[in-house]
């Protein structure tokens, strides 16, 4: 479970002080499937960076699985990220010189998992996203949708408490967006994997069970209990 208490992030741009995130109290329970939406500049990406321990709040605290992040050194934050969190970004998700499986293995490498087990777990994760046949392909040989599915496999491979996705469909067409969100939803249902997706795409938000809307760094609305099944177009091939 992830809890933020009054987290605020202030940026100083010259003499101007901007509160990108302004005293947010948010808690995310295990097994949730939620989206964080809002217009650009609403603070949603900053919030994701703070929850993801990629950035340090100006004030307030973040706790992950009962562990307070505020007191931790950068090294310990890295360790916590490695052990508890998975990330999917909009672009630049995969290392271009590594094949799909090698990319998925990367977090396990940082966790010092022995190579055979690494290999096995990476293949399992690729199986979950339906890409075992692409294991040896480099990112440049994959379609946009496939790349994001590899990124999801990489985020899942460490069995994290929370997968944070920052505009995961931002670079995808409608069909692939639908497929990617469907995949995340299925994974959430089947494995109970917690997802928090930052998006400005209302279609993505529609398919999540809880939608947090931000405006000017504050929560405008936080609506739970939604559920709409993605209806993707007939199983066409991914468009490259």
């Amino acid at each position: 479970m992830i809890v933020t208490r009054g987290i605020t992030k202030v940026y100083n741009i010259g003499p101007v002080e901007i509160k990108a995130v302004d005293g947010l109290d948010i808690s995310i329970e295990a097994g949730e499937f939620l989206s964080i939406v809002g217009p650009s500049g609403s603070g949603k990406t900053t919030l994701l960076h703070l929850i993801g321990l990629l950035d340090v709040p100006t004030s307030g605290s973040v706790s992950i699985d009962g562990q307070e992040a505020g007191a931790l050194s950068p090294k310990e934050l890295t360790r916590l990220r490695r052990e508890k969190l998975g990330f999917v970004f909009q672009e630049f998700n995969l290392l271009p010189v590594l094949g799909a499986r090698e990319n998925v293995e990367l977090p396990l490498r940082y966790l010092k998992v022995p190579s055979q087990e690494r290999h096995r777990r990476a293949m399992e994760a690729l199986e979950m996203v339906g890409l075992t046949n692409r294991a040896d392909n480099r990112p440049s040989q994959l379609s946009g949708g496939e790349r994001q599915r590899v990124a999801i496999a990489r985020a899942l491979v460490t069995d994290p408490v929370l997968v944070l996705a920052d505009e995961p469909t931002g670079e995808l067409d409608t069909h692939n967006t639908c497929k990617v969100i469907e995949l995340m939803r299925d994974l959430n249902r089947e494995t109970g994997q917690t997802f928090a997706i930052v998006t400005h795409d209302s279609m993505v938000a529609d398919y999540t069970r809880r939608v947090i809307t931000l405006r000017d760094g504050k929560v405008e609305s936080d609506i739970a209990g939604l559920e709409k099944d993605p209806v993707c177009e007939a199983d066409a091939e991914d468009i490259r």
Binding site: G52, K75, T78, R82, F89, L95, P107, Y110, R154
Partner: peptide, 10 residues
């Protein structure tokens, strides 16, 4: 940045 995000040590 990506590597560090997913847990690479300095």
């Amino acid at each position: 940045g990506l590597k560090k995000a997913i847990g690479a040590e300095t």
